[in-house]
Design a protein around this nucleic acid. Sequence first.
DNA 1: TTTATCATTGTGTACGTTAACAATTTAAAT
DNA 2: ATTTAAATTGTTAACGTACACAATGATAAA
Lengths: 353, 353
Amino acid sequence: MMKEEQPLVGVKELARLAGVSIGTIDRVLHDRPGVAAKTKAKVLAVLAEHDYKPNMIARALSSRKTKQIVVLIPKDSPESAYWQSPLQGVEKASAEIQPYSFQIDLRLFDQNERLSFIEQVEALMEQEFDGLVLAPMFRVESHPLFTYCDTHAIPYVFLNSDIPNVNNKAYFGPDLFQSGCMAAQLIKYLVQPSDEILLVHISKEMEMQHHLLRKEEGVLQYMESKGMRQQLHKLLIRDTDYATIESSLQTALSNTAIRLILVTNSRVSSVARFLEAHNHSDIRLLGFDYLPDNIAYLEKEVIDFLFCHKPIAQGYQAVMSLFHLLENNHIPEKINYMPIDVISKENYPYYEN
Amino acid sequence: MMKEEQPLVGVKELARLAGVSIGTIDRVLHDRPGVAAKTKAKVLAVLAEHDYKPNMIARALSSRKTKQIVVLIPKDSPESAYWQSPLQGVEKASAEIQPYSFQIDLRLFDQNERLSFIEQVEALMEQEFDGLVLAPMFRVESHPLFTYCDTHAIPYVFLNSDIPNVNNKAYFGPDLFQSGCMAAQLIKYLVQPSDEILLVHISKEMEMQHHLLRKEEGVLQYMESKGMRQQLHKLLIRDTDYATIESSLQTALSNTAIRLILVTNSRVSSVARFLEAHNHSDIRLLGFDYLPDNIAYLEKEVIDFLFCHKPIAQGYQAVMSLFHLLENNHIPEKINYMPIDVISKENYPYYEN
DNA sequence: TTTATCATTGTGTACGTTAACAATTTAAAT
DNA sequence: ATTTAAATTGTTAACGTACACAATGATAAA
């Protein structure tokens, strides 16, 4: 069952069949120069006929040069532990592909320092590498890198956020809009018609606005389509320290019947801290991302639900997609939306990022 | 970055260090006979000092035989499409490891025929194989297989259900109890204190009772711990045809204020069919497993939520864990509880099994 | 025609491990 | 002491691919 005994042709057998030497076979296989047109045609014919599957084991053993995959993502900062998770995934992938002569070249930039990103980009363009995993947060600043990769035929994939009209081989990350819909659906179950809802964006980065607003659109569209008539307030907090957040929330929550707060990113723990400190245990709280701070409040039931997009898997899959592309010429799906996971106190211990 | 340059000793270097030939090194490494006691001691000393990591790639290439991983799981039947998913995962893994000289030997048994399982087990024990993925639904009948594997040093991993006190290398599947807790938590949000709840078990298999009851325990424990006082009815339906289910439900739903039904397995679509046919759109419905029938009712909002434990990933991960163990000597986690996913109309298109 | 140049093809070694076989040493039997 | 057997150790050819290098053939320049 499931066996399909193939004769398992190798380069040697192919050489015999095509009436050439294994050297020529090798050249054709790797599309190297130095093969006469008609010889190449003959070999390709034999190749097509016998669907040759290279023995990856032998290939890995033989190839003396290791392939480099560059991973260019934000460094994880105390103010946002998010990027620790994709990094974990990258490291897992790294360990797995190491035996096959692949190496990860990790480049971290500071999310808040446009310049640090530019530096890394410029350094990269001086360097040899075979594949690139990129979190293209700085859109315009990334473009030189794309043209560089395109001209050198270096495949690159995106992580966590996507850029349209670029030659990237794949995208691994969330579908922000649908993510908002999901949140709205849970909201539907959690509130009464008379309740009011507060949408909170917390970010000082202009670049990130897109992320948050796209989620908001999802929420709004779902609520409209379902005829949800709850009053919806919005609050944009442009600073991430607790003092600012506290005062903003204090005014926002006065004189309203707000019974549910949705924070559109991972800063939800700050809001949780506020709710706990001010004894607002009657307000439901939803937010994003599996981070230690958030989990702590989930455990305490200050946060009711978190939405998550498998950050570890994002890093792992992005690297592995390049590995499979470079190693087996497996072409990845262009768009890889990560699942929208709903995390609560009950299932978080089992959550796999 | 992330480099860690080791000198990477091989058998050759070891031989030089121990002052013997690589043949002797090889014999010691594999604990083969024909080495004088004191030579062996010397080699072992050198070995301990230089923590030699065999190059698994070279090893795989050298040992010319392809490794066989046997997968012994139920065949998917029309009455329960569940096992199609783990099989999908197995097949994906199969394709991935084929280039590395691994083969999947797929053995399917009939969930309802204890005998068909025993047959497969007996056939297996006549056969050579290097690893085993097993769904140990028939507990006692599996035991001969375990002792066989143990004596032959063949690693085996469990899928979907676990057996304690056995030498399996790993388990991939749900934590049933916690799964029940998760369901109960959602129930908490979905019902009023005055509402009544119906728990429905549908199964004709004795073996499966454990699965269902363990979930029930989870539900009960959570409700108790949260002081949920809703009246809880239970219904055990010991036949899976719609007629039986319909009549059972009809009597169960008469004269009660039941506003929510939790079906403890994938048969929830039958209940959905009933609710739709009898215009019970006021009753919330929860159940298990991402199956086409269930998704159809989720789409129609007859089913509100499904819980799911990544059946495809189960199959994939189980096979891959054996692959990594046999290929790279990577020891897997013993317990791999799959995530408890909450699926709704909004996120099911993004769900990855 | 001879030589130099280039394009094309073939050969052989290496990757690290395995395992069959050969060579050597040691012990036992005569 | 010599022969024979057994135990121990060493040598080497695979495994399938990559790549440097050698060899051949073809073409152009002298």
